[in-house]
Each structure stands twice: as C-alpha cells, then as structure tokens.
Amino acid sequence: MTETATSGTLGEVLAELAGLEDPRVREANGKRGDDHGVNLSQLRAVAKRLKTQQELARALWATGDTAARLLALLVCQPKAFERDELDAMLREARAPKVHDWLVNYVVKKSPHAEDLRVAWTADPDPVVASAGWALTSERVAKKPEGLDLPGLLDTIEAEMKEAPDRLQWAMNTTLAVIGIEHPEHRARALDIGERLEVLKDYPTPPNCTSPFAPIWINEMVRRQSKA
C-alpha cells in the first residue's frame, strides 16, 4: 500500500494515475474512443485503496481527465449526487467508457434514475438518449411495471435502423431484453430484429453471443430453458 494512494489528495492521486500511464494501453483504448492509458485493473486497485471519497470524486471529475473521471466513478457515493449534477455529468461524458460507467455504476443506483431515464430517452442528443435507453433496458429487465413495452417496440421499429451508433446499440439492447424477458412480446421483437438487420454482421469473437437481436434473444432463451 503506497502512501500516495491512501492519503487521497487530488494532486497525489493524479500523480499516481500519471505514473500508471502506458502508451500501449492508450493506443488500444483510442481505437474504442477512450482517451486514457491506464490499465483498468490498476485503476480499480487504486480505487480499492482509496475507498469511498465523495469530495475527492467530485474533484477528480472536475479535472476533465478521462482516467481521473473513471476513478471518480469508482470512489464516489452514487446517491450523493443531485439530479441536475448527474445530468450535467452525463452531457460532459463523451468518452464511451466514462459514459458507460457513469450510467451503470452511478445513475442506476441513484434515486433520480427514473426521472433521468425519461428525460434522457427523449433528448435530441443521441449520446444522451443512449443513456436513457440503457436505463430503459434495466427497467425492462428488473421493474417493467408501468412501462409501455409495445410503445417501446414501436419506437425501436421506427428509429433504430437510422440511429447513430451508440444510440442504435442501446436501442438494440432494449429490443433484445424485451424479447428475452417478456415472452408475450418475443415474436414481435424477433421480427423487428430480423427485418431491420441491425448489428447482423457485427464481428463476434468465438464463444461470445452475437449482439444481433434474434441470435441474442434465442440464445438467452435457450439458456434459460436449460437452467
């Protein structure tokens, strides 16, 4: 355990992150749109030593540095953020990994998640809207009561094909989750996926499930039937 990692001042933590910078990691991350060069396992190790520090998290976020923001999301208190603070953070989070961690590690645990889901899904910014659809997928799977699932399928059918990449991916996930979790809508979800062919040719590594919704739905239903 290093002194700099446990004392937790902003300058010390930033210095440690700078020391973890690896040009090879930065190059690999850059191909995915993430502008940082810190190995995520090492980043998580720093977060584990720091434990939860909300004010440090806010200070790390304010630097605008991608690695610092990822660390901020690991040491923050998700329920301590106000609704408008989370909204502003999301609009600043253009790096895909920061966007993903903010939604999954922080917003999903926030009491403002549903309010933000509704607002973001209707936002004209496709990156913001993709966060709304990510939260919608979570609700479809875990708390679907009150959701208009046929209406969601209508929107996906009408808009997913031409949506920008991140928004398209998030809408496709909602489509798949509806098909997996709700048998009464499965046939329609499969039909939409087959007709739109979104992500049909997405390169999928061996032993991984394709994100193409019909393959994804059928594979997960098959696994559930065996469980």
Rank of each mutant, 00 (worst) to 15 (best):
A47W: 02
K48Y: 02
K48E: 12
K48Q: 08
K51G: 10
T52N: 03
T52F: 09
Q53G: 09
Q53L: 09
Q54A: 13
Q54S: 12
L56I: 04
L56V: 01
L56T: 00
A57K: 01
A57W: 03
A57N: 06
R58W: 05
A59S: 12
A59Y: 08
A59F: 07
A59R: 08
W61N: 06
W61T: 09
G64W: 00
D65G: 15
D65P: 10
D65K: 09
T66M: 01
T66H: 03
T66G: 03
T66P: 05
A67D: 08
A67F: 08
A67M: 04
R69N: 07
R69F: 07
R69S: 03
L70Q: 02
L71W: 00
A72Q: 00
A72Y: 02
A72S: 12
L73P: 02
L73W: 04
L74P: 00
L74W: 05
V75Q: 01
P78N: 11
P78L: 14
P78D: 10
K79I: 11
K79G: 05
A80Y: 04
A80C: 09
F81P: 02
F81E: 01
E82M: 13
R83A: 10
R83L: 13
R83F: 09
R83C: 13
D84G: 07
D84Q: 12
D84F: 11
D84K: 07
D84V: 14
E85S: 13
L86W: 12
L86R: 14
D87T: 09
A88K: 07
A88P: 07
A88C: 06
L90P: 05
L90W: 07
R91V: 02
R91P: 01
E92D: 08
E92A: 13
E92N: 08
